[in-house]
Design a protein around this nucleic acid. Sequence first.
DNA 1: ATTATATATATCATTCTGATATATATACGC
DNA 2: GCGTATATATATCAGAATGATATATATAAT
Lengths: 186, 186
Amino acid sequence: MQKETLCLGLLSLGPRSGYEIKQMFEGPLSDFYSLSFGTIYPTLNSLQADKYVSCKQHSQSKKPDKKVYTITKKGMDLMKDNLLSDASSYIRSGNFGDQIKSEFFLLLLFSKYLPNETMNTVLNERVLYLKQKLEQFKYDGPVPGNLDAIRNEKSVSFIRGLASTLIETGLNYIEKNRHLLKEKTK
Amino acid sequence: MQKETLCLGLLSLGPRSGYEIKQMFEGPLSDFYSLSFGTIYPTLNSLQADKYVSCKQHSQSKKPDKKVYTITKKGMDLMKDNLLSDASSYIRSGNFGDQIKSEFFLLLLFSKYLPNETMNTVLNERVLYLKQKLEQFKYDGPVPGNLDAIRNEKSVSFIRGLASTLIETGLNYIEKNRHLLKEKTK
DNA sequence: ATTATATATATCATTCTGATATATATACGC
DNA sequence: GCGTATATATATCAGAATGATATATATAAT
């Protein structure tokens, strides 16, 4: 999916600044996709130049102006068209996997070259991290305003449920099988 | 983890060509990490220049020479050092998550803008894909020679077990909850 | 009082991917 | 037997994305 379609999709949930879009990529969304400032800001500028979004500047004394972008009719149309063709090419491509870069997995893979002690700490920290993630996904209390819209999407309930189940399964597996990593050929 | 450490780690399992290293990133490893030819070949050249690997050219009549790289003592030392500091910075960084870009998740997220029909096909294809993946991870028969070494790693048994359990959980969840995505606000 | 964190945008060198070029062998359908 | 597709094998490079840095200030924590 192009960065343009993704930004438009997020703006379809309500007006946002570039900074706020980045924040959306730091909550639960970060576990599935992410874009950096260096991508978001230029994308918003080009979307504005082509009238897919409009922009309102909110001056804030000496801070840089907050530039709040709103998706236009033209933008909504482009987003829907692009989503349709993205779905088609996803289906046609035969490439259904996700692109993953997992430092944790690489450390596991080469664990025989690491001291037991070190690998133990790596696993402990990963378990702690997963437990935190699990709480985040299960948490149903209030969230900051700019993250509220995405939280209330129906699809997000589905995704949160999926993520929670997967993390629980992963945690159980690690606790029950981590002893298998201990035997070394160092 | 640097690409150099990763290539050295794979070469520690036995001599390989660049092409064969790429193949390792296309089997089960592809679900956790991947490098492109454009990264692998230059990395191998620079590792060779710095004597971390040695290279034997196997001429094959009119095909390009197959360049088989073998890790040196110096290379093993560098790899182990780097792995140790990678593990330390993994622990220190507080950044335990994996970097993920999931087209499937984005299509889910914006499913309300897609026809039910399209979303249904996307889910069906994803389910088929996951079932294939599951078979791959569970498959215990013979594999091509260059993939055999990685298959026999103890850590890989742990990882394959983890992947199988996660995929099974994911499949069950999708089958039981996909109806939740049908209600639209289109 | 000082340090760290949060808000807010912008830019850019470095890195990585994905595509392309080159060359041949083999398998497959018709 | 003939064209097509796929596999083997390396190399390069344009284009895209990241991660770091610059700039500026408010606020919270120590």
